[in-house]
Each structure stands twice: as C-alpha cells, then as structure tokens.
Write a protein that binds this DNA or RNA. Sequence first.
DNA 1: CAGAGTATTCAAAGTTCTCTGAAACTTACA
DNA 2: TGTAAGTTTCAGAGAACTTTGAATACTCTG
Lengths: 163, 163
Amino acid sequence: MSDNERLRDLAENLALILAQGGMQKATARVMTSLLFSRQETMTAADLCEELQISSGAVSGAVKQLAQSGLLERVPAPGSRRDHYRFPDGAWARLMSQQNQLLSTMSEVAEQGLAAADGPSTPAGRRLAEMGDFYAFMLRELPPLIARWRTDFTAKREVRVWRG
Amino acid sequence: MSDNERLRDLAENLALILAQGGMQKATARVMTSLLFSRQETMTAADLCEELQISSGAVSGAVKQLAQSGLLERVPAPGSRRDHYRFPDGAWARLMSQQNQLLSTMSEVAEQGLAAADGPSTPAGRRLAEMGDFYAFMLRELPPLIARWRTDFTAKREVRVWRG
DNA sequence: CAGAGTATTCAAAGTTCTCTGAAACTTACA
DNA sequence: TGTAAGTTTCAGAGAACTTTGAATACTCTG
C-alpha cells in the first residue's frame, strides 16, 4: 500500500470513529480529508471528488465545521473557488469549547443541590459530587490547555530555527 | 414550584442536553432520573412510571448505562426487583474512559505522520500538532483526575466527621 | 418443583436524521 | 451589466436509529 493510500485509509478510519461519537458522517469525512490532505488547502470541488458526495453535503459539512472552528476559509487570490483548511490550534480550541459543557454541568448540579435540601440527602450527595467534579475540571482544564499551547509554540519555533 | 418539581425539571433538562450531545433519549432520562432522585435507588418499575416509557426501553437504557459505569445494580434483600443507582465516582470514571479516545487520536496521528514524510509537509505539520496535543492530554489528564479523587475523598470525610 | 413476579429480547412501527439533486442565489470578471 | 463559475438552500427519498408491546426467559419463594 502506498503512503497516499495509507493516508486516505487513516482519514476514513478516523472519520468512522468520529461518526460513531456522534459527528455527522459527511462532516467527519470532510474534516479528516482536510486533516490528512497532502495539499495545504482543498476546494469544495476537491472534496466532492475525493469523497464522492454531493456539493450540498460538502456545503453543509463546511458550515458545521467552520462554526466549531475545525475549518477555516482561506483567501485564495486568483481563484474564484473557496479554499478550506484545517486550522492550526484547532484541537486545543475544540477542547476549550468543552468548557461550555463543563460549566453547564456545574450549574445544573448547583441548582439541583439547592432544591435537594443540602448534601446530606441522597440526591444532595450525588449532586454535590457532580458539582465538585465539574467545578474542579472547569478550574483546572483551561490552564492545562494554555500550558500545552505555550509548550508547543516553543517546540515549533525550535523546529523552525533548525530549518 | 415545589422543590420536587424543580428537581424533576432539572433532570429532564439535563437529559435533553445530553441527548443533544448524542446520548439516546431514554438512556439520558433514566440516568438523570437516578441522579436527581430523592430515593437512594430506583427500580425498573419506578423508572417506567416516572418517565412514562416501556419496560423494554428501561431495560435497554439500563444495559447501556451499566456498561459505561453510569449505573449500578444494588442488591436489595427482601425485594425481587432489581434496584439501580447512580454510582459514586461515576463522573470521574466517565472522564477516565475518554482516555481511550485520546489514545486512539494520538496513535492515528503518529501513523499519519509516518505516512506523510515527516513534519515539514503540510499533512505532517497538522498531524504532528495533533499527535503532540493528544499525547500531552493523555499524560496530564489521568493525574488530574486522580488528584480530584483524593481531594474529594478528603472533603467527604470532613463532612462525615462533622455530620 | 410450581407459579408469580420481574427482566430481557426482538420484530414491527414510528421517528428522526442525512444525503441528494435541482433550483436559487452570489460573486467576479469581461 | 451580462454571464459564467461556484456556493447555498431546500424538499423529498431513503437510511438509521428508537421505542413499543408481546413473547420468552429467568429467579425467587412457598
């Protein structure tokens, strides 16, 4: 199997995993195509051809991905077509967006605790644990992600110096 | 609105959020019922009545939840019915299970990097970043969760002494 | 070991979601 | 401003997933 075939295989495989995790199939395939593509950017037509899906499906996938920051439009002078790419830092951004959910979980738990007459009732015990856990994660995760960003940026610069 | 109604409302609301995030509706509702219930445990019949769903749906939901550690069967002497409860430490366990996914992401990125002729190609750059990010998270998340467990266990013990 | 009370399985029905293909819309250039 | 290239929208077909309800299997208890 050539390296190109291997890349395509890995892309389709990862798309499958993401689809099982709730992402739309076409959306997942567009995302992994961009991620594993040898090209810097891909056009909608490229994606249609590579994935054998309609332009409508590509349009929908692009919309969703752009909203969650997993795809960016690249200005392409001299081309009428939109060019898309998988943005640098997307993974970190994706995980940061999870904070939204953590925050919701934490709030719901607090409200529940208030309605449950404190942490000594069964419901109160469960909700207190839930609230504590999500508050903890909400406190700890953002600095962790920030630390990765710093580390990785430093590493990348070393690579660039070395050329 | 009474506190009981508020609890039920919060439960249904959270179930809706989880369902939007890909969890099956019946499964999410069973989970949040157990989480917000004033009782220590609930039976299948309790769940059927509270949620107005069939026993088949409850059975399916119980199966799924038990597999992911979000529900546990409680031995109930003197009752023929199974009793279910939301287990202590479930949230931490749930997050730990995400490590499986982190691990997969990290591996796929490595394999992709190998097929992409190193980090100086466009695909290589993207996959190197992805691999680095997930390897980092895989290294940092488990100790973080362990730390929460320790902290929370200590806190709970303080509550018990005082209680 | 018989029988009542529960839990689980499974086919069928219902529901929701996704993709396609065509039409409408937008944009860039002559 | 007209035209051609490209993108987005949307209704409808089809696929995939959920739930139900009845039949089956299980498990205590007398």
